[in-house]
């Protein structure tokens, strides 16, 4: 369970998040939606300890989030990970990065760790690319490699920041099918997305964010009026066909 209470975040005089109170139960497939600048990435980064907490509390499994993060692996797929495409790493090296915290100095990856990397890559459908240099991977392939890295450590939570951004239209639905499988295997998924149409088929909990918070369960997901009331003219519901 992830519990957020009385969370406020500002940059200078500018409020980014205001009075956020939110509980995400285990097993949810939660989607965070909102217009640009609504504070979606900020909220995720605060939960993941990538931004310092200014006001409020975040707890994961009843423990202050920074303490929890120190001792547990956390699954995270960032929107635009900065890396040099010429960096001498293979896809498998990147997946093994998710297990590198387990290594002591002078230790090499064990056979069982390599096996876990293989399983994660098979599950996300990128095992065939294991030996390819990262510079030779397409956007969609790299996305699956990073998803494999996010799940290889065995975290029960998986955060994704606009995973559809670097995947082509046809790939988005397949990617969400994969996320649903991971969700059904017991992982709690929290994803930022702009693709409402796809989300309605997969997620169980919708978090509408625009500095402040508004939550819905699945039954209300398709009610465009609610989303429109909340975001006003800044957001339009786009129906895509795949």
């Amino acid at each position: 369970m992830i519990s957020i209470s009385e969370l406020n975040y500002r940059i200078g005089e500018h409020a980014i998040l205001q009075d956020i109170n939110l509980d995400i139960a285990e097993g949810e497939f939660a989607a965070i939606i909102g217009p640009n600048g609504a504070g979606k990435s900020t909220l995720i980064k605060l939960i993941l300890g990538l931004l310092p907490l200014q006001e409020g509390r975040i707890e994961i499994d009843g423990v202050p989030h920074l303490n929890w993060l120190k001792h547990h692996p956390m699954g995270y797929l960032p929107q635009d990970e900065k890396f040099d495409r010429r960096f001498p790493a293979t896809a498998k090296d990147i997946v093994l990065m998710g297990l590198a915290a387990e290594l002591k100095p002078a230790q090499r990856f064990s056979t069982s760790q390599k096996e876990r990397a293989r399983e994660a890559m098979q599950q996300t459908g990128c095992w065939e690319q294991a030996k390819k240099p990262i510079g030779a991977l397409s956007g969609g392939e790299m996305q699956r490699v990073m998803l494999a890295r996010a799940i290889v450590g065995g975290s029960k939570y998986l955060f994704l920041d606009e995973p559809e951004a670097s995947v082509d239209q046809a790939g988005v639905k397949n990617f969400f099918v994969l996320l649903k499988e991971l969700n059904q295997q017991g992982r709690t998924i929290i994803t930022i997305s702009h693709d409402l149409h796809t989300l309605t088929s997969f997620c169980s909990f919708l978090i509408c964010l625009n500095k402040t918070l508004h939550c819905h369960d699945k039954t209300e997901l398709i009610n465009a009026d609610i989303v429109h009331d909340f975001f006003g003219e800044t957001t339009k519901i786009v129906h895509k066909s795949y």
């Binding site: 890396f83 990065m97 915290a101």
Partner: peptide, 12 residues
């Protein structure tokens, strides 16, 4: 060398 910020997040 690959990505210091991500490596830190992954507790390396």
């Amino acid at each position: 060398s690959y990505n210091a910020e991500m490596a830190q997040f992954l507790r390396i």
